[in-house]
Design a protein around this nucleic acid. Structure first.
Length: 305
DNA sequence: CCTTGAACCTGGGCGC
DNA sequence: TGCGCCCAGGTTCAAG
């Protein structure tokens, strides 16, 4: 018997957190019995002996830092996973006498873009965790116990958008003397780690701030600027928290979804709403799409100053 | 150091 | 139906 779950789309922080929660029951406490690599690389080459170093290791916990998933292993190493733009995981639970890999024989062929399969043996039976990534912007790495925070992917990351550090003081420190647009500064993972294009647009709308103004323009001691930073910090927390809550709902109902934007998009105030009326009470503006550093920004000129 | 833009890939949607 | 173009959740580089 095969039970198939569907996890993961739109990989910004809330989605990565949703994936983490979805995978944790299958992965935590399980032993990796076999690792299938269908190709030598994703965005980057897998590290040397990647599969061998994972084999027969028990997964102690699955955590998240920014948009990274981190599986802690029983030898002190950690498996680092990033979903890029199009990565997703599926879990297939096997019960009965199936051998690992049999699900591929039950299908006439391997689904396109299934690049990594972790065959797990847990207390409640076996499971296969399959990483699929059409665009291959995702990547994986293996951290030795001594690597810790010196890992090239983790070392430069900024503060967590939902952590205790997020507040007007941190924003002042991080954005001081930054001449880049607010939009670009919020996307800079070295300052705040975990925000992506959708939720930056959403948070700026909620805070009533223009994506075009310079980041340093909300730095300063005046009450107006303190208010702007406070509203921005609150908006970031709020938008992320609501998206995680929505992700949780869609996860419970995942059989009803097709894995596309569908479910979440009802929650967006500006993202992908070009030409629609601004949803702010009494605003009357129209959502506009502009391009900043090569990426779409959705905003309302009327109420975002 | 700082900021911007190209590059990495595949697939879906649209206009012609 | 098909072709070419534009667009998409992110990150790393190179160039200015």
């Amino acid at each position: 018997m095969i039970i198939e779950g569907y996890e993961g789309y739109m990989p910004e922080l809330p989605e990565v957190e949703t994936v983490r929660r979805g995978l944790a029951p299958s992965m935590e406490g399980a032993v990796i019995r076999h690792v299938e690599l269908r190709r030598p690389d994703l965005r980057f080459a897998f590290p040397p002996d990647f599969a061998a170093r994972l084999t027969n290791r028990r997964i102690l916990g699955l955590s998240r830092r920014a948009k990274y998933l981190i599986a802690g292993l029983d030898d002190g190493a950690s498996l680092l996973m990033h979903l890029g733009m199009s990565g997703s995981f599926r879990v297939i639970r096997q019960t009965g006498s199936q051998m690992p890999g049999d699900f591929h024989h039950e299908r006439s062929q391997i689904p396109a873009h299934d690049h990594v399969v972790l065959h797990l043996e847990g207390p409640d039976g076996s499971a296969s965790v399959i990483y699929n990534d059409p665009r291959r912007f995702g990547f994986m790495d293996l951290l030795s116990p001594s690597d810790g925070a010196s890992n090239r992917f983790l070392s430069g990351l900024g503060i967590e958008p939902t952590g205790n550090e997020m507040g007007p003081d941190s924003i002042a420190r991080l954005f001081d003397r930054k001449t880049s647009p607010l939009k670009a500064a919020l996307l800079d993972q070295r300052l705040i780690a975990g925000l992506g294009n959708i939720y930056v647009c959403e948070a700026l709308w909620e805070a009533g701030l223009s994506p075009l103004r310079q980041a340093q323009s909300i730095v300063g001691n005046g009450p107006a600027r303190l208010g702007q930073r406070t509203r921005l910090a609150d908006a970031i927390r709020d938008v992320i928290a609501r998206a995680i809550a929505a992700g949780g709902s869609s996860l419970r109902d995942h059989r009803l979804t097709d894995g596309s934007l569908g479910y979440f998009q009802h929650c967006f105030s500006v993202y992908d709403r070009e030409g629609e009326a601004c949803r702010r009470e009494g605003c009357g503006g129209t959502i506009e799409r502009i391009v900043q550093s090569g990426r779409s920004t959705f905003h309302c000129r009327q109420c975002q100053k």
